[in-house]
Amino acid sequence: MEIIAETDRADVVIIGGGPAGLSAALSLGRARRRVVVVDGGRPRNAPAPHMHGVLGHDGLPPLELLEKGRREVVGYGVRIVPGTATLARVVDGGVEIDTTAGTLRARRLVVATGLADELPDNPGLREQWGRGAVVCPYCDGWEHRDDVIGVIATSPESVRQAQLLRQWSDRVVYFPNAIGEPDPEAADALVRRGIRIEHGTVAAVQIVEDEVTGVEVDGHTVPVDVIFTGPTLRPNDALLRSLGATSSDGPNGSWVDIDADGRTSVPGVWAVGNVVDLRANVSVSLGLGALIAGAVNADLVLADIAAAPAVQ
């Protein structure tokens, strides 16, 4: 496989060109580091027409934010390589990364590959994902204030989502879907706050003229204006695991371990954003990208000091 820039090893290669990766690239580029971003061009929030709660960019299409970000980082000398990473190795005090565009060599690696949403297998749900079917109350609750909000359960924890959404509307319908049946105490709490419980198995999400109009359950349709649900979150961490990064199991599955600065257990390798933190929305990812970039640059400074020749 061709080696990209064989004679000019990058300071940092960043895998992933979403908000976290580009934010890290911006800070590192401004720090005059040689940075390469490998971008597969498949951001998690691509289906969403707008993003919300991002200061200064509320309502901006998420793809427009990334377009602006790419222009900014390129202006500081950051190189963007279209493609995906397939394998990485720790070699010679740095990292070598095989990508679909060739092989990159770097002193440090930042993985910002995000996660994938695995949705319940209900017809209509995937077709509306990011528009009429969403997950985050803080991202989309305001836009559906006072609407009829349907919550399709994916686990008993979905009761919390229904209770949270009651903050935005007094017309919340909870669909346990034989998966998230509330215990008696939780059911009582739902009813006391006026949240309607529709028992039965969800068959499909009803769509009329590309808008959600209802949920089909046990042979009848319950009218709703929007669906909130909780997908299974699968971090895109195969690259980190292939490097031998340690991980920990929790209530939301297995996630690669990082310290407060985003450092993994693999020397010279950091991770940031949804690949290691399911809570990292756009705003959080932007901040964490800048934070991790500072930690990576500080580590490189220490390496530069150690490599500096002694004064004769």
Rank of each mutant, 00 (worst) to 15 (best):
T246D: 09
T154I: 11
V134P: 01
D8Y: 11
V205H: 00
V54C: 13
L164G: 01
V38Q: 00
V91A: 13
A48G: 04
P231E: 02
L22R: 02
C139H: 00
L243M: 13
G219R: 10
A203H: 11
I80R: 02
T103L: 12
A189R: 11
V215C: 09
I292N: 09
T84W: 10
I197E: 01
V208A: 15
I152Y: 02
V91C: 10
A203C: 01
A20Y: 01
P47E: 02
V269C: 04
E67L: 14
A10D: 07
H199P: 12
D218S: 14
R30Y: 02
A303R: 14
D261A: 12
G102A: 13
G18V: 03
P62M: 09
P223E: 06
L60Y: 05
N252M: 11
V269Q: 04
I4L: 12
L302W: 14
R32A: 12
G150S: 06
L240I: 07
V134R: 05
A307F: 00
R166E: 12
E127N: 09
L115C: 05
L125K: 03
D249A: 15
A46K: 09
L26M: 08
D58I: 08
M51V: 05
A24E: 10
R263V: 07
S254D: 02
G268C: 09
L28G: 02
A310H: 15
R196Q: 08
A204P: 08
G16W: 03
V173M: 05
P120D: 06
L291N: 07
G59D: 10
V215K: 00
I207S: 03
L240E: 07
L300S: 10
I195Y: 01
L26R: 00
I3C: 10
F228L: 10
A203S: 15
A25T: 05
D188E: 15
L115W: 02
A260T: 14
C136P: 08
L278R: 14
G53F: 00
I227P: 03
A88F: 07
A178Q: 13
W270N: 05
Q163T: 05
S248T: 13
E143L: 04
T229H: 13
D8N: 15
D225W: 02
R71G: 14
V172L: 03
W129D: 08
V272I: 08
S158Q: 09
V191K: 13
V284E: 06
D98G: 15
V173I: 11
T154A: 15
D146G: 10
A293K: 06
N252H: 15
V202E: 04
G17M: 04
A298H: 11
R33F: 00
A46P: 01
R30I: 10
S155K: 04
V212A: 10
L300V: 08
G130A: 05
R241C: 13
G262T: 09
H144V: 03
V224H: 03
N122E: 14
G219K: 06
D261T: 12
L300W: 04
G214V: 03
D188F: 12
T113G: 01
L55S: 11
